[in-house]
């Protein structure tokens, strides 16, 4: 218990101690943070390009009833039923949004809002109503906490200890994301930028749209435990959006977003250690901070460059009479 909001900054306790005294835990937590934000960022690049950012927000909220119902049906917290419930919820969200859009004159933005809030409400009610039976906590789903991920269950493979189960799971999801990215990069590129061209090349844009939605649900459900349903949106949007301020090339943007993810995980962890705050929250604060820096100081598109250009231009264009 402490009295002040900002504790004294002490280099040793913030930056050194976590790596000397609890080195193992710190390592797994930072790695998990990086895996989560890296995978989210990878998918996020495409989500941003397709203007699906708020659909992602909607999906992340509607996961709550999905996993709750899956939990009530199977009565277990195994990965598979949770994953299936979440995917079903993600697909249902997108289908409902489309249904409202097509059957009425409601605009897509309002349709998104109506669908996700209703589904989220259902989830909250289910959790509160079955509070005694459910081992899920709505607040835990909302916040998520990297510090609380279970590190005891170690996955063994071929007699070797690989790592804690959640970290290994997230790493697998990340590898799948990379695999999918490498195999469908061209298709995703074309369908993201020019669905018409894609269709004329024989690539079905709708199929890739749904594919991305599905995978987005998978990524969100595997991340929410660590970062919570709202901050997963930060992890999806921030790396890509920051990278896209620096470059116009998608491959470069993807590399940059991965780099940013690593920064979020590392710096966010230390910020949270200093403040004794939520690690996911700390990562988001760092993400926002880095975005702010890039927004102001990016070489081509930064505010500073823009102002400088404008000042220069007005000098040249309007010479003194």
């Amino acid at each position: 218990m402490r009295e002040r909001f900002f504790p004294d900054f002490d280099w040793h306790t913030v930056f050194v101690q976590p790596w000397t005294d609890y080195s193992e835990n710190s390592f797994w937590i930072v790695l998990m943070g990086f895996l989560v934000s890296g995978t989210c960022g990878l998918v996020g690049c495409f989500v941003i390009l397709r203007r699906m950012a708020l659909v992602g927000d909607a999906i992340s909220h509607s996961l709550l009833p999905g996993i709750t119902i899956a939990f009530l049906l199977t009565n277990s917290r195994d990965t598979l039923p949770m994953m299936l419930g979440a995917i079903a919820a993600g697909v249902a969200t997108v289908a409902l949004i489309e249904a409202i859009r097509h059957s009425s004159r409601i605009k897509p933005d309002a349709a998104i809002g109506i669908v996700f809030s209703s589904l989220f409400a259902i989830g909250v009610i289910l959790i509160s109503a079955f509070a005694d039976k459910i081992d899920l906590d709505a607040e835990c789903v909302l916040y998520g906490e990297l510090g609380f991920i279970p590190l005891q269950d170690v996955v063994m493979f071929g007699g070797m200890e690989i790592g804690p189960e959640p970290v290994v799971r997230m790493a697998i999801i990340g590898l799948i994301a990379i695999g999918l990215l490498l195999s469908f990069f061209k298709e995703m590129l074309v369908t993201s930028f020019d669905p018409g061209l894609a269709a004329s090349l024989g690539i079905n844009p709708t199929r890739y749209q749904y594919g991305l939605t599905l995978f987005l649900s998978v990524v969100i459900v595997s991340s929410f435990e660590s970062v919570g349903v709202v901050l997963v949106i930060a992890m999806i949007i921030f790396p890509g959006a920051t990278a896209l301020l620096l470059t116009d090339r998608l491959p470069k943007a993807i590399w940059l977003s991965t780099l940013f993810s690593a920064l979020y995980a590392g710096l966010g962890f230390h910020l949270a250690t200093w403040l004794e705050a939520s690690i996911a929250g700390g990562m988001t604060v760092i993400a926002g901070f880095i975005f702010g820096l890039v927004w102001i100081a990016a070489p081509d598109r930064g505010l500073l460059t823009k102002f400088a250009k404008r000042a220069l231009k007005s000098e040249i264009v309007l010479p003194n009479p």
Binding site: V230, L231, A234
Partner: peptide, 17 residues
Amino acid sequence: DSTMGMVLAGFYGVGIC
């Protein structure tokens, strides 16, 4: 949409902290 998502999640992250 990206802008709104960033402000939403960024501010919320600060709030959670």
